[in-house]
Each structure stands twice: as structure tokens, then as C-alpha cells.
């Protein structure tokens, strides 16, 4: 995890720097259908994160030797804008974004009915406009809305959240300071109907008890996050009464 620091991240009342309790989420907002050209899209604002996910496809996979005769391939590309972080990020994929793109593609593919689209490719472009910790999970949560917005058949949403350890305490949905100076980071994403885990990474230092605590916090938050995904999608669909006879 990040470097050591003298900053106190949890005060004597058990509150965090931004005033949250250990199990509180940051403010979260999702809007579907934010782009004209893409087949599906979503904007997520989660804490200070601003991330757009755009979906193209299913379309013919290219180059052709990448085609799978049994199913569609899912290609997520996670990218951070140069201006999304304090110090300018050199544009283009680095090792971190390549790894993130891989695990996000695998998580999304686990939710999509890829067997309906042999030889096809589904592209998911995730652009981090402003980063504020938890970008991979926020990007993934938005991507799932964008895929639904594109009308691609899915088994379920993919819904994610992170937990971590800060000043020796387990907390939900790390902020930037907590991510930088905390002792552990645990992003998890599930198919929320049955809590099947499609993404999990961890780094830092956790005991088994802390892991259990962190995962039950995450599982407790998943239904709330999924509800926001669902309403983002349903508010995109307008029901119109055309009058008539």
C-alpha cells in the first residue's frame, strides 16, 4: 500500500477526514446515455471520480484471428486522462491500466451473454476524466450500465465497491487520502442478484477477521449501488402516452 504518513485519517469520534462513518459510501450518481455516437454509455460521479464508459458493439471482431467462433470477445480499455490526477499522467496505456483493463474485461464478460454473438467483439471504453480513488470499480460499475444501455443481453449487472484498512480500522469506499496512506485496499465486484464475485483484488495487509469485516461491508453496500445503476437505466427509458382513441 501507500507510504506511511502522520496524517490522522480517523478522528477520536471514529469519523473519517470527509466526515463519513466507517461504513458510509461517498455520494454516487450515474447517468446513462450521455454520448451520442456510442451504442451505449454512462457517466458515473462517485466521490470526486468522474468517469465515462462507452460501449460499441457487438460488432465484427477485428483483427479476424482474434475472433472466437463460439462467443463474443469483450475488450475493456481503462484509460486515465492526462489531467485526471494531480501530477500529469503521461497519455497512453501503462502497466497498471493494462492490468486493470484485463480484469475489467474478464469481469464484464462474466456478466454478458457472449455465446449469442460468435465472432463478435464488444468494446468498452472507460475514460477517467477525474480520479479520486476507486476508479477501477467506478469505471466497472458505469460500464455495466453502458452495456445495458447498448441493449446487450446480460445475465445481471456488475456492481462493485471497495473496502480497505485505514489507521488499523476497516472502512468502506476509500477516499484518495485513505487510498494513499491506508494499509489495505480490497476492490470487489459481483453479479448482485446472487453475489457471485467476478472481480477481486487485494493488496496491503489484512487478517482473516479484517477480510471478513471488509467483505461484509462491501456486500452490504452492493444492493444500494445496484439500485442506482438500475434507476440510471430506467430513467433513460421514456414512456410516452401518445393519446389516441
Amino acid at each position: 500500500m501507500g507510504t506511511q504518513s502522520d496524517i490522522k485519517l480517523i478522528d477520536e469520534n471514529g469519523l473519517r477526514l470527509d466526515g463519513r462513518k466507517p461504513g458510509d459510501l461517498r455520494p454516487l450518481k450515474i447517468q446513462a446515455g450521455v454520448l451520442e455516437r456510442a451504442d451505449g454509455s454512462a457517466l458515473i460521479e462517485w466521490g470526486g471520480n468522474k468517469i465515462i464508459a462507452a460501449v460499441y458493439g457487438p460488432r465484427e471482431a477485428y483483427p479476424k484471428h482474434n475472433q472466437d467462433i463460439n462467443k463474443a470477445i469483450v475488450k475493456a480499455r481503462y484509460n486515465m486522462a492526462a489531467f485526471s490526477v494531480d501530477e500529469r499522467k503521461r497519455p497512453g496505456p501503462d502497466r497498471r491500466s493494462i492490468e486493470i483493463s484485463k480484469v475489467l474485461s474478464e469481469a464484464l464478460e462474466s456478466s454478458i451473454m457472449v455465446e449469442q454473438f460468435p465472432r463478435a467483439q464488444i468494446d468498452v471504453f472507460i475514460e477517467v476524466i477525474q480520479a479520486d480513488a476507486g476508479t477501477r470499480i467506478a469505471g466497472l460499475t458505469a460500464s455495466s450500465v453502458a452495456i445495458a444501455d447498448a441493449g446487450i443481453p446480460m445475465r445481471d449487472f456488475v456492481t462493485g465497491c471497495t473496502a480497505g484498512k485505514v489507521d488499523g480500522k476497516v472502512v468502506l469506499d476509500l477516499s484518495k487520502e485513505e487510498d494513499n496512506f491506508g494499509q489495505a485496499d480490497l476492490p470487489i465486484a459481483v453479479l448482485p442478484r446472487n453475489n457471485r464475485i467476478v472481480l477481486m483484488q487485494m493488496d496491503g495487509d489484512l487478517t482473516l477477521e479484517e477480510f471478513d469485516q471488509a467483505t461484509s461491508m462491501i456486500m452490504g453496500a452492493i444492493p444500494r449501488i445496484n439500485e442506482i445503476q438500475r434507476s440510471a437505466l430506467s430513467s433513460r427509458i421514456k414512456v410516452q402516452d401518445s393519446g389516441g382513441e
Binding site: K102, V103, N195, Q201, F211, T215
Partner: peptide, 24 residues
């Protein structure tokens, strides 16, 4: 000391929480 230091789920597919705990 039996502490968890790193984890990674990979490949297409899913695990239940019970399976994750068993893996740990």
C-alpha cells in the same frame, strides 16, 4: 503470520464468497 498480502481473481468466471474463503 497468516496475514493476507495480495489477492487476484483472474479469468472469466465467478466465485462465491464461500469459495473465496475456502481459497484463502
Amino acid at each position: 503470520d497468516g496475514r493476507l498480502r495480495a489477492m487476484q481473481k483472474g479469468d472469466v468466471g465467478w466465485f462465491t464468497m464461500e469459495e473465496i474463503k475456502k481459497a484463502i
